[in-house]
Amino acid sequence: MIETALSVLVGIFFAVAVYLLLSKHTIRIMLGVVVLGNAANLSIFTAGRLTREVPPVIPPDLYVPEIATANPLPQALVLTAIVISFSLFAFLLVLAWRAYQDLDTDNTEEMRLAEPKNDPLPPLSY
């Protein structure tokens, strides 16, 4: 039951993330990246089956667990994904701040005006 509810929540997170990523403003795009990272983390965590009150540890004298154990792989993947998504967000935040300082706008359509119109085109062949 809870896995079904979390699956619906993951779908809502992905929908919100796509909506924010399609925006013209860099702040909304960055928020979309954060929501997308959280949706991916929740998706990995839900796919790993939610078992509570069961440790992911096998006793040292056994090769195969006697009882059901929690799967430690989704937990490790989610921890790694949290670090990666935070570093990506920090990079995007610095990039957006620098673009805002130089261009005085966070609208991506207005950022295209930074390209000079009278400059010659780059070489089209080499």
Rank of each mutant, 00 (worst) to 15 (best):
A99W: 09
E115I: 15
T51P: 07
I67M: 10
V8F: 13
E53C: 07
K24V: 11
S87I: 15
M30S: 13
G37D: 04
A90C: 13
T26R: 04
A47G: 15
V94P: 00
Q101V: 10
I29K: 09
D119P: 00
L93V: 10
L88V: 15
R112I: 06
E53W: 13
S23T: 09
N41K: 10
V34M: 11
A68N: 10
I67V: 12
P123Q: 05
D102L: 11
V57W: 07
A39H: 03
L88C: 08
R112N: 12
I58M: 02
T69D: 00
P74T: 02
N71V: 03
A47P: 04
V33C: 06
K24Q: 11
V33H: 05
I12P: 08
S125H: 04
F91G: 12
V10Q: 05
E3A: 13
G48W: 02
S43T: 02
I27A: 13
M111N: 07
D61E: 13
D119Q: 14
E53K: 08
Y63P: 00
G32V: 04
P60L: 03
L50A: 12
E109R: 15
R98V: 13
F14W: 06
R49E: 09
S43F: 13
A40Y: 06
L121D: 10
L93T: 12
R49K: 14
S87G: 09
D119G: 14
A68E: 15
P72Y: 09
I44S: 01
I44E: 02
I12D: 01
I58C: 02
F91T: 12
N38W: 07
P55Y: 10
V8W: 08
N118I: 08
A81R: 04
L124N: 08
A114C: 04
F13N: 09
L103K: 08
P65L: 01
E109K: 15
V16D: 00
L95M: 15
R49T: 14
I2T: 11
R28N: 15
V33Q: 05
V64E: 11
A68C: 03
R52C: 01
F91E: 00
Y63M: 05
S7K: 12
T108Y: 08
Q101M: 12
A39N: 05
N41I: 09
L50N: 06
V33D: 04
M111T: 05
G32H: 00
P122Q: 02
I84H: 04
G48C: 03
P123V: 04
S87E: 02
I12S: 01
A76N: 05
Y19M: 10
Y19D: 05
F89C: 12
R98L: 15
A47E: 06
R112T: 11
N38V: 13
K117L: 13
S85A: 14
E110M: 13
L79D: 10
T80W: 01
A90G: 00
V8K: 10
V83W: 12
L95D: 04
L9M: 14
P55N: 06
V54F: 10
F89D: 01
A5L: 14
A76I: 06
N41Y: 00
R98S: 15
L9T: 12
T80Y: 07
P72T: 01
S85M: 12
A15Q: 07
A90P: 01
L22Q: 09
E115Y: 11
Q101C: 08
T69A: 10
G11N: 01
K117M: 09
K117C: 00
F45G: 00
V64N: 08
T26N: 10
P56H: 05
M1N: 11
V94N: 08
A70D: 07
T108W: 07
